[in-house]
């Protein structure tokens, strides 16, 4: 699908033999390439690392107060800070359909914003919930695409959040014979997979 040239790609390629610190995030750039283009990255990784640190402090104290065991992992994935609370017995922080996780992510973004003055697009995960959901969404997209290739008929998927839709768009992007679009208004916006 849409894979606009990432400014980060070109930066990486201009330093083939200059010490090459090989940022670990370089490998996963395509994962968030169009989101990166939307947000116009360029603030560099420094801000995102700081976002992760602020978020970790905020969440660590909460876990402490609530007497929940969890390790906090901070990463920068392509163009955003990614913070994960890892551990068992954290279902309470995920909630039905991930509502509590989304709420916690919202509050964490606000806590980061208060410190940095920059709106954060930080992703929070708890107990691998989003990672599992991502795999599930990719499978839903690929299965539907296979049906569309077979039948030649377009297929509409269930409404999804922007992030969920992006996962599906990406998963279907390299399947020949189909294209993906989104239609409708939030929160009913959904993906349509059509024969190409």
């Amino acid at each position: 699908m849409t894979s606009p040239d990432s400014p980060i790609d070109t930066e990486v390629e201009t330093t083939p033999d200059a010490g090459d610190p090989a940022p670990p995030s370089a490998a996963v750039i395509e994962d968030g390439a169009d989101a990166a283009a939307e947000a116009g990255t360029g603030d560099g990784v420094g801000l995102l690392e700081r976002e992760g640190d602020i978020a970790a402090d905020y969440l660590e104290v909460l876990l402490d107060i609530a007497d929940l065991d969890g390790d906090i992992d901070i990463d920068v994935e392509a163009d955003r800070a990614a913070v994960s609370i890892i551990g068992d017995g954290l279902d309470r922080l995920i909630g039905p359909g991930g509502v509590t996780l989304d709420a916690l992510q919202e509050l964490t973004r606000l806590a980061v914003y208060r410190e940095t003055g920059v709106r954060s697009r930080l992703m929070l995960d708890v107990g691998g919930h989003r990672a599992r959901r991502r795999e599930e969404l990719a499978r839903i997209g690929k299965d539907a695409a296979a049906r569309v290739v077979d039948s030649g008929e377009p297929e509409r998927l269930a409404p999804m959040t922007p992030f969920e839709r992006k996962v599906v768009h990406d998963a279907v992007a390299d399947i020949d014979g189909v294209i993906t679009e989104s239609e409708g208004e939030e929160p009913e916006r959904r993906i349509v997979i059509r024969p190409a």
Binding site: G95, L104, L107
Partner: peptide, 9 residues
């Protein structure tokens, strides 16, 4: 969001 987290806890 605050309510959601407090209900969870």
């Amino acid at each position: 969001a605050l309510r959601s987290v407090m209900t969870a806890l």
